[in-house]
Design a protein around this nucleic acid. Structure first.
Lengths: 149, 149
DNA sequence: GCTCATTGTTACCTATGCTCACAATGAACT
DNA sequence: AGTTCATTGTGAGCATAGGTAACAATGAGC
């Protein structure tokens, strides 16, 4: 079946689905009552998969936002003791972001929250379909076969 | 290839892609310089595919937002003359939203903007892949085979 | 009549991200 | 040395998108 503007429709569906993903993710996070917003959660997960503590600028690039946006996120996470700002002795302009023990504990909860949220979102799809979808999304994001997690 | 948390990864990819879709859509809209935000654009397109002028509540349901959010969108569109609030004589609580001629003109531009944005986003996919993706997204959104446009 | 549901809106609040300007620092080149 | 330029993070302020809670006007059921 062909629609008059299939690509535009696809973008529409993508945006619509996105709103739902946001809502569901937000709800699952709030349910766990960690005091962590979705964007903070993403930063924490990104942090967890880093080797040594990254710079603010590294995080900004990885998260695809401007550095100023990272400042706000780290502010919130630092206030709740999930991360620590550590000055870099080698270059006094840079600040490295470290996970605290508290942050590592929160990450376990976050993973569970994300898993249940993903389950709710992806419920209508079979395993094969999920795999196909993952492949297509990867192609859209870039050419790599694996993401940040 | 199997990752330790494939579903969580999928949600991650979806959110990441979403940010990109938003950015691209916003840029294409700004480029056309219509003074219309992405959310307003969505409301206009929804409006265009309605039979008779819908109520605010109808729009809220269709857009999957609370009625209060529609008020703001309509405020903006009415201020720029793209839609008109028309009281319903049969029920004086309801307000019906009509497209103006100006709004209809804007819609043509919007369609072009959306098409070019979609083309940019979907460039890495072949026609078949787009079709597959559309099917999967539809399944995720609900069971219907066709969307709002 | 009285009560209750519907409808839109006023008045906030939150989350996310942006730009612009700036201060501190480091690097490069006279 | 000094001067200039790039990097790095952040303060200030804005825009978008959405949400809650309270409310006034209206309609519907009794």
């Amino acid at each position: 079946m062909t629609t008059p503007d299939p690509d535009g429709l696809l973008a529409e569906q993508l945006l619509r689905l996105t709103r739902r993903v946001h809502r569901i993710q937000k709800r699952h996070l709030e349910h766990r009552d960690l005091g962590i917003t979705p964007a903070q959660s993403r930063l924490l997960r990104t942090l967890a998969h880093w080797g040594s503590p990254p710079r603010m600028a590294d995080l900004a690039e990885r998260l695809e936002v401007v550095p100023r946006a990272v400042t706000t996120l780290v502010d919130g996470l630092e206030a709740s003791g999930k991360v620590r700002r550590v000055p870099d002795p080698a270059n006094r302009r840079v600040i490295r972001i470290e996970l605290t023990d508290d942050g590592r504990g929160a990450l376990r909860e976050l993973r569970a929250a994300r898993r249940s949220a993903a389950e709710e979102i992806l419920a209508p799809l079979t395993g094969d379909q999920r795999e196909t979808l993952g492949g297509l999304l990867n192609t859209l994001i870039d050419g790599t076969p694996a993401g940040p997690c």
